[in-house]
């Protein structure tokens, strides 16, 4: 995946809470078997609303999304982070994220940044006052710099940060511990149930 170090770009204030993954990418677009091309369907229904913020010219080319709490709730569809990434977003800032969405983002190099509700509201207000203003997200320093120069620090698990900074692939990291997996399988793995009994019966 692409490394994430520091990103400076236009930030979009999406002043809504509990934005679910059905809004980020509706179900009719989950039928593709490819990993790319979801960006044009991002917020598909909301983009039909008059004045929807993403459609306003100030925000063309935006790379940072700012939203309210519980962003990404609902389904586990990784298509949601794929759509955000494909549209051009590199980071999402919110007071809280749904767990599966947050994990999915970090697997593809899209940075979820958790600030306090107060900080998000301040940032949101600045972005509304100065539409199209740039924000900087530094993963190296764990700092968000707002358009007026305020600096908000954020926490992120050290191993996740390391992985994002380096663009490391999770599977390769785990396979470095293949001995440990084999040892577990040999010594401690529970007996069954094996799905193998269904292999032939199930294919018809």
């Amino acid at each position: 995946m692409e490394k994430f170090t520091t990103v400076t770009g236009i930030a979009v204030p999406l002043d809504r809470a509990d934005v679910d993954t059905d809004q980020i990418i509706p179900k009719q677009f989950l039928k593709r078997i490819e990993r790319t091309g979801f960006g044009e369907f991002l917020f598909f229904d909301w983009r039909k609303e008059p004045d929807f913020i993403l459609e306003q010219p100030f925000y063309r080319g935006a790379s940072i999304l700012v939203a309210q709490r519980n962003f990404g709730c609902g389904s586990s569809r990784e298509h949601a982070p794929w759509a955000l990434e494909d549209y051009g977003f590199r980071a999402v800032i919110a007071p809280s994220f749904a767990d599966i969405f947050r994990t999915n983002c970090t697997k593809i190099g899209l940075l979820p940044v958790q600030l306090t509700e107060d900080e998000v509201n301040k940032l949101m207000a600045q972005l509304k006052a100065i539409p199209g203003a740039p924000v900087t997200v530094s993963l190296e320093d764990r700092i968000v710099t707002t358009p007026t120069g305020e600096r908000f620090s954020f926490e992120i698990a050290p191993d996740v940060r390391e992985r994002l900074l380096n663009g490391w692939d999770d599977i390769s990291l785990t396979l470095a511990h293949e001995d440990a997996i084999a040892a577990y399988e040999g010594d401690r793995e529970r007996e069954g149930p094996s799905t193998g009994q269904f292999l032939t019966a199930s294919q018809t």
Partner: peptide, 20 residues
């Protein structure tokens, strides 16, 4: 628990998942 597609690939390949 539910997982995303990158994690599906991870479990297919390793039968494990890193979990906080």
């Amino acid at each position: 628990f539910g997982i995303g597609t990158s994690e599906v690939e991870h479990v297919l390949a390793t039968q494990t998942l890193p979990q906080g």
